[in-house]
């Protein structure tokens, strides 16, 4: 009898603690959404900041973040996917493969501020890119590279070996098998990972602090050697070091909501895609 009472108590404690985790998310999202929703309108999204960033919009920051996401994905996506293919399909089991995987894990664990330091010393100073979109994009690209590699690996792992064997059996080469059979099946999963990493890149602040982000720059970039404003850094500036922190609070709420919305949308799309795919696979 006491045994089952103990179990009841233990399970209720587990339930309460798990709901605390949910509560945290609800609190944070609820707070940001309820405070920010009143600020967001078309004008907020499409005009320049005014009056020392206490009025106007966040247009240049949105465009800046857009450039950085695009740039970093252009860099990280092809290399990451190829690296994932290499690790899962090509590398012979052994020391080299384990070493590459270990290094990928290590890179994934490196703090974002260290990427910032590295990006500053390599791209900004050594390669003389200056504070520019290209320096920031490359730094962010390095940061998400392990994420892309891992999702590619996972996606390839989920492709059943019988597909590969069937393709080999028909006389196809390794490359043909990967290109014509494995990749088409794995692509949707890879894209899911890509969408999630877009969410990650658009929120990173520390790597862009010293490689691209501008405190206040009310114009759009014209080349990849320009500085830009970016949403996460803009939020940081508005909430800690703006010209008038109290007056720019509303702007900060709006910016935070836009950032959260990007992550939310990315997650929703990724989840929907995943669900859609698992249905499709079942049908086969």
């Amino acid at each position: 009898m006491t045994k089952s009472i103990n179990q009841q108590i233990a399970f209720w404690i587990l339930r309460i603690m798990s709901s605390l985790v949910v509560l945290f998310l609800v609190l944070i999202l609820g707070f940001i959404i309820s405070k920010g929703i009143g600020v967001i309108n078309w004008k907020f999204l499409t005009t320049m900041p005014e009056d020392g960033m206490t009025k106007g919009g966040i247009y240049p920051a949105i465009i800046g973040t857009f450039c950085l996401v695009g740039g970093s994905m252009l860099f990280a996506f092809p290399i990451g996917v190829m690296s994932g293919i290499f690790i899962h399909e090509y590398a012979p089991n052994g020391f080299f493969k384990r070493f590459v995987q270990l290094m990928t894990n290590n890179l994934a664990g490196v703090p974002s501020i260290v990427f910032g330091l590295f990006g500053m010393s390599l791209f900004v100073n050594k390669l003389h890119f200056g504070d520019s979109i290209i320096a920031g994009s490359l730094t962010l690209g390095l940061l998400v590279l392990p994420v892309v590699i891992r999702t590619t690996e996972e996606a390839l792992k989920s492709v059943n070996d019988s597909f590969r064997l069937a393709s080999y059996g028909l006389g196809a080469s390794k490359l043909q098998t990967i290109w014509r059979v494995v990749l088409p099946i794995a692509t949707p999963n890879i894209i899911t990972g890509l969408i999630l990493s877009i969410g990650r890149v658009s929120g990173e602040t520390a790597p862009i602090l010293f490689t691209v982000a501008a405190y206040y720059l009310p114009k759009l970039p014209t080349s990849m050697y320009d500085q830009v404003m970016a949403l996460p850094y803009h939020l940081y500036v508005l909430s800690t070091s703006g010209t008038d922190i109290k007056a720019s609070r509303d702007m900060a709420y709006g910016t935070a909501l836009v950032l959260v919305a990007i992550v939310l949308i990315a997650n929703l799309i990724a989840n929907a895609l995943r669900k859609f795919l698992s249905k499709k696979v079942k049908m086969n």
Binding site: V21, L25, G203, E204, Y233, L235, A256, V263, N267
Partner: peptide
């Protein structure tokens, strides 16, 4: 329900956590 909640917690940018911390 819990799985996406945890994914979202992981996805929220650190600067937003910082902002929430600062304001709340």
């Amino acid at each position: 329900i819990l799985k996406p909640v945890i994914e979202l917690l992981a996805g929220i940018p650190s600067v937003v956590y910082g902002f929430f911390g600062l304001v709340v």
